[in-house]
Design a protein around this nucleic acid. Structure first.
Lengths: 240, 240
DNA sequence: CGTCGTGGTATGTCTAGACATATTGATCGC
DNA sequence: GCGATCAATATGTCTAGACATACCACGACG
């Protein structure tokens, strides 16, 4: 009943025709002037709908040639990697956190020198738990040259991930997800048997090309799954 | 030297000020009419830049109130989960594929009944390899009620993931990533020792609410990492 | 004092055009 | 036949406005 904006309707119509297969990859989408006539609106409105479709990778637009249904490339998925504390609390569990070790030191190798950016590193080891069950062991390095305020933070009470999320914005990041077997120390801290399968998430973030932090989190394989739920109609738009 | 479109420059300027922390979460962004004056352009151009920022979750716009820097919610990461064949070939390795088992059967349990949508299921087991080294063991179910053409496909030569990607569009999907220990059969097929840590990726996809396929891929932990590289300036825009 | 309009304001949507730019397809010259 | 040139065309960008809509603040009324 609520009259959706026209450009949204056009967007939805075309999206439906693409996803239903009526318009298959490579097929040409009606010219803007045709859609203009069809919907009785101006070209700007049609163009807005097409721009959104292009932004979401459903269509490709080429000058002079027209707009076409894009070839499906890869499953591009939005993987939500929230702050662990927020994640645990959202599930209604009690979040626990313990700082195991904190020291300041220089970089010890190639990758760490790059991260350090000429300054010292803050190395933290901590343990996250949900309802008193160990959930993740975290090894984190923070480049103090880039995030000098980190020295003053009391990481006894604040998980470094939470603090960084709030105070140290990043511009690029890389996540590396893999499976590893728990070594003896990890197994003891996570209360699992040595050699058990664990999910390893290693994340590195940069701000304007300078490394900010590098973190490796190890989760017991039987206690944690990363879940990414998404739609190709896309879930990012808050207005829906 | 190339004069970028104005709306892009405005976008980049504001993005920079947000990511650098100059504009912190909750801060108000100059009104559109102020930006209009500042850049000497029309409101539509400013609005386009703000719309893109809003679309990417960096700002929130409210009528009457204005535009504000969004609260950082979660690290939302673009995780590219491409077709395995394309992935392997892109790395310059020889892609190998072998169909181990194919049968058509009815659903055997709760979740499968939901997937089957009243029809039979096609159950496939296959093995992917890179340079003759086993890379992943795949168990897949396809709902024939939704994708009837799958019966006619020769999965001896075409990996089901590749075929589905090309011919059966999806609208929603869920990825579940975890770590598991290899059971005896898996270990033998992947040529690893039983109990070795493996990365398990389970993906379910739907089209308009109807389940299309469910797949579980198991990768040896020491041979495969999922890597997600992204920037909060976001990598989806093909024009960059 | 509380509650219900009401007006002002900022964004949301849209129009009808303009010029710029890239690319295609055809024409022309060799 | 083949290559270079050129015009037609579709999209990209932008303008200067218009009306719609949501929201906040303030004031009037009970």
């Amino acid at each position: 009943m609520t009259p959706d904006p026209l450009h949204r309707r056009i967007y939805a119509d075309l999206e439906g025709r693409i996803l239903s297969g009526e318009l298959s990859p490579g097929a040409r989408i009606p010219f803007e002037h045709e859609l203009t006539a069809q919907y009785g609106c101006s070209r700007a409105t049609v163009s807005k709908a097409l721009s959104e479709l292009a932004g979401r990778g459903l269509v490709t637009r080429r000058r002079r040639a027209g707009s076409f249904v894009a070839q499906p490339k890869a499953h591009a998925a939005f993987l939500a990697i929230p702050d662990l504390r927020a994640e645990v609390m959202e599930r209604g569990q009690a979040y626990g956190y313990r700082l195991l070790d904190q020291k300041q030191r220089g970089p010890d190798g190639g990758a760490e020198i790059e991260l350090a950016a000429g300054g010292p590193l803050l190395a933290l080891t901590c343990l996250h738990s949900a309802d008193s069950v160990p959930l993740a062991l975290e090894h984190r390095l923070i480049a103090l040259a880039v995030a000098p305020q980190a020295i003053k933070v009391n990481f006894q009470s604040t998980p470094p991930g939470t603090w960084l999320l709030d105070y140290e914005p990043w511009t690029e990041a890389e996540n590396r997800i893999g499976a590893v077997e728990a070594d003896a120390l990890t197994a003891r801290l996570l209360q699992i048997k040595p050699g058990a399968a664990c999910l390893s998430v290693e994340r590195r973030t940069w701000r304007d090309g300078q490394g900010v932090t590098r973190v490796r989190q190890v989760f017991p394989g039987d206690r944690f799954d990363l879940v990414a739920l998404f739609s190709s109609a896309h879930a990012k738009d808050p207005s829906r």
